[in-house]
Simulated assay, not measured.
Amino acid sequence: MLSRCPGWEALNILDAPPDGPVAFSGDLSPGCLLAAYRAGAYPFPAYDEYTRALNEVVFADQIQEGRIRLLGESADPYAVSWWSPDPRPVLPVSAAHLGRSLARRLRNRLSWSTSLDRRFEPVVRECGAGRTPPWLTEELIASLVHLHDLGHAHSVEVWEDGELVGGVFGLRVGPVFSMDSMFFHRPGASKVAVNDLAARFAEAGGLLLDAQRDSPHVRDLGAVLVPREQYLRHLRDTAYESLPMPTATLPADRLARPTG
């Protein structure tokens, strides 16, 4: 049973800054984490005291004006900033694609396979290993694992001869899958993970993979920018019928085969 987070449930972020935090709240409990994703926001924990203090000083005026909200009753709300960029980079599941070179390698040389939810926590920890700043805190990882146990968070794994060589993880909210992070130990493995996720999510009726933060890498995957308002409408699509994603371990070269 997840605790409710009325602050997130009542928050309207349409008028929040497009390129900065939309809220501060130190509550990373599973219930509040899921409520934030449903509201269209994702967390970025401060990784040291300087960053936490900077949050409080830099955004004080916007908080006083009500453009950025302080949520919950946590002792230190500035320990976690919450973001919802406008515009938002999203990848329609039908637009996911592998580059020609990677597709050729999958068809001719790579004997990779993919799976869903076989190694959720290891994928999360691989995504955080060596990253600067270190945003995947132990508290955040614990909440993500709890949400995975409840069926809200998922991972895709890429395997080479039994070795985990790539993956992606995130949270599913209706027709949207919000990808938190990805990793690779072999060139192209993270792209294969994202394409596999798109294929499995499409089979479950999903529409969009949310890349959260814009970058050349996510554009290369096929992401496009949409207004925040449009992104939020997708999250709140009440007509969407949630279906389970396929869980079978599958050959990765199927992703390189022509469709149609």
Rank of each mutant, 00 (worst) to 15 (best):
W8M: 04
A193D: 07
Q230I: 07
A75D: 12
P87V: 13
A198K: 03
T249C: 11
S242K: 06
L243A: 15
G166H: 01
Q230D: 15
G167C: 07
G260N: 07
D220C: 01
E73Y: 07
A198I: 12
P92Y: 10
D180E: 15
W83L: 14
P85I: 10
A129I: 04
R104A: 13
F24T: 04
Y42G: 12
S113A: 02
M182F: 14
R125M: 00
F169N: 00
A95Y: 09
V145N: 08
G7N: 11
P175Q: 05
V93M: 13
G40M: 02
G72P: 04
A202L: 12
L98D: 00
E138K: 11
V93E: 02
V93Y: 03
C32N: 02
W83T: 03
H152L: 04
F120R: 06
D61G: 04
P258L: 09
A193R: 02
F44Q: 10
R131K: 11
V158R: 01
P216I: 05
R119F: 06
E56M: 14
L102N: 08
I13F: 00
A153W: 01
P258D: 13
Y231G: 00
L116Y: 10
A96Y: 00
P17V: 10
G151S: 10
L33D: 07
R257E: 14
S113G: 06
G188F: 01
R4T: 13
R186H: 09
L197Y: 04
G151A: 07
L116S: 03
E121M: 00
L208I: 05
F183L: 09
P122T: 08
H217L: 01
T114A: 12
A193L: 08
P21G: 05
R186T: 11
D214E: 14
D117G: 03
R228K: 14
W112A: 03
V165Y: 00
S215R: 14
N55R: 12
S94H: 06
W159V: 15
P30E: 06
E163A: 15
L207I: 11
R118K: 14
D76V: 10
F59M: 03
P92G: 11
P89W: 08
V226Q: 09
P92D: 05
Y47D: 04
G188H: 04
D237N: 10
H152D: 09
G162K: 02
L235H: 01
